[in-house]
């Protein structure tokens, strides 16, 4: 468990290198989410996206990336919403230990 001061006011990790699967579960719990296999599939994809494109995806890019990697059924915003309610790109990125998306997008 990381202490509260490892996170900023919005719950994003301050040091990205602190991230590990346990931290993901901790962030998810603070958002009232329990991570299952379906969540982990997306979390791994988000981390792969970050390594490939050096950026945190906006919703449009995340949906398309999921469609390309996991097939059309999972490349839908409704599917991502069911796993990460509200704002899937933002919440998913937060849990996956990605940098906060650019404010301007």
């Amino acid at each position: 468990m990381l202490s509260a001061n490892a996170f900023d006011k919005e719950g994003f990790l301050i040091e990205l290198t602190d991230w590990n699967p346990g931290v993901a579960a901790q962030i998810a719990a603070s958002e009232n989410l329990e991570l299952g296999a379906a969540h982990w599939e997306i979390i791994n994809l988000l981390r792969e996206y970050y390594l490939t494109y050096d950026s945190t995806p906006a919703m449009r890019a995340l949906v398309k990336y999921c469609a390309l990697s996991l097939g059309p059924e999972k490349g839908k915003s409704i599917y991502l919403m069911s796993l990460f309610p509200g704002s899937p790109a933002k919440l998913g990125s937060k849990i996956s230990g990605l940098p906060k998306p650019d404010n301007c997008l």
Binding site: T52, Y53, D54, S55, A58, R60, A61, K64, Y65
Partner: peptide
């Protein structure tokens, strides 16, 4: 590799353009 200098890699970011159509 912008990462060598601790900044975002412009080349890799441009590679994501098709994902934004």
């Amino acid at each position: 590799d912008g990462r060598v200098k601790g900044v975002k890699d412009v080349g890799r970011q441009l590679a994501s353009l098709p994902l934004y159509d």
